[in-house]
Simulated assay, not measured.
Amino acid sequence: MNPLTRHFPLYGLRLTTPRLTLRLPDPAELAALADVAADGVHDAAIMPFNVPWSEAPPAERAFGVVRHHFEMLGRIGAERWAIPFAVFHGDGVVGMQDIGSREFAITRQVGSGSWLGQRFHGKGIGTEMRAAILHLAFDGFGAEVAVSAAHVDNPASLAVSRKLGYRENGTERVTPGGKPNVLQRLLIDREAWAENRAVDVTVEGLDDCRDLLGLPA
């Protein structure tokens, strides 16, 4: 057990699927995650993120991953939180999947974001890691709604959402990197999640995190 778990219980939160483990990384694992980002997370011809962090040079991408990880952890509290899970597959880390909310006790809504090392694309990992955090949201946290979004020219991300049962929830014009694009908003409620769930997920360490995240008992 990570010794920090006694003081920061999110280090004991773990999600397990048939192929993946999602949990907070230790320093060496966070360094490996930064290396994955430095190696590339998508084709250079597209920009899947509203903030084009992935266009930075490799060393800057790696630094940004580490900084963002600690920024997210530093903001966690009962009224606002985002958990930056590292995603482990086989012998190492392959990407990052986050889940977050504001005023969860009132809204019962979560949002999510993710990225996956480019060399791990096309293996169904993106679907499985999103399924894991949807299970955590609905079965673990007691969420009623989960939202996500993807640019309309990002068919892979949109396909993951459709496969898991999300429905379209309006669009928004955005300007990633100063270039026009359209963001497709997506939503899935508890009923749609229950009808479409197809991945077995085990959650460990959640009860110790409830006070920190302001979750119902």
Score class of each variant (00 low, 15 high):
Met1Phe: 12
Asn2Cys: 13
Pro3Glu: 08
Pro3Gly: 12
Leu4Ile: 11
Thr5Glu: 01
Thr5Ser: 06
His7Gln: 02
His7Val: 08
Phe8Cys: 02
Leu10Asp: 04
Tyr11Gly: 05
Arg14Pro: 12
Arg14Gln: 14
Arg14Ser: 13
Leu15Cys: 15
Leu15Val: 15
Thr16Tyr: 01
Arg19Asn: 01
Leu20Arg: 06
Leu22Met: 07
Arg23Trp: 10
Arg23Phe: 11
Arg23Asp: 06
Leu24His: 11
Leu24Phe: 14
Asp26Trp: 14
Ala28Tyr: 12
Glu29Met: 08
Glu29Cys: 10
Leu30Lys: 10
Leu30Ala: 05
Leu30Tyr: 09
Ala32Gly: 00
Asp35Thr: 15
Ala37Lys: 08
Ala37Pro: 06
Ala37Gly: 08
Asp39Leu: 01
Ala44His: 11
Ala44Val: 15
Ile46Met: 03
Met47Pro: 04
Pro48His: 01
Pro57Trp: 05
Pro57Ala: 09
Phe63Asn: 14
Gly64Gln: 02
Gly64His: 02
Val65Pro: 07
Val65Lys: 09
Val66Asn: 00
His68Ile: 08
His69Lys: 00
Phe70Trp: 06
Glu71Phe: 08
Glu71Asp: 07
Leu73His: 05
Gly74Lys: 06
Arg75Tyr: 08
Glu79Tyr: 10
Arg80Asp: 11
Arg80Met: 15
Ile83Cys: 06
His89Tyr: 11
Gly90Glu: 05
Gly90His: 06
Val94Cys: 02
Gly95Ala: 13
Gly95Cys: 11
Ser101His: 13
Glu103Thr: 14
Phe104Asp: 01
Phe104Glu: 01
Gln109Val: 13
Val110Trp: 03
Val110Asn: 02
Ser112Cys: 08
Gly113Cys: 06
Gly113Trp: 06
Ser114Thr: 04
Arg119Asp: 02
Phe120Ala: 00
His121Tyr: 05
His121Cys: 06
Gly122Leu: 02
Lys123His: 09
Gly124Ala: 07
Ile125Trp: 02
Arg130Asp: 00
Ala132Lys: 09
Ile133Gly: 01
Ala137Leu: 11
Ala137Ile: 15
Phe138Ala: 03
Asp139Tyr: 01
Gly142Val: 10
Ala143Phe: 10
Glu144His: 12
Val145Lys: 12
Ala146Leu: 07
Ala146Ser: 10
Val147Asn: 01
Ser148Trp: 04
Ala149Asp: 00
Ala149Pro: 03
His151Cys: 05
Asn154Ser: 05
Pro155Met: 00
Ala156Gly: 04
Ala156Ile: 13
Ser157Gly: 10
Val160Tyr: 00
Arg162Lys: 07
Gly165Ala: 06
Tyr166Thr: 04
Arg167Met: 07
Asn169Gln: 09
Thr171Leu: 13
Thr171Asp: 08
Arg173Lys: 13
Gly177Leu: 05
Asn181Leu: 09
Leu186Gly: 07
Ile188Ser: 01
Asp189Tyr: 00
Arg190Leu: 14
Glu191Asn: 07
Ala192Cys: 04
Ala192Phe: 04
Trp193Phe: 13
Glu195Ile: 13
Glu195His: 06
Asn196Leu: 15
Arg197Phe: 14
Val201Ser: 01
Val201Leu: 10
Thr202His: 07
Glu204Gln: 12
Gly205Cys: 12
Asp208Leu: 10
Cys209Thr: 13
Cys209Val: 12
Arg210Glu: 03
Asp211Gly: 10
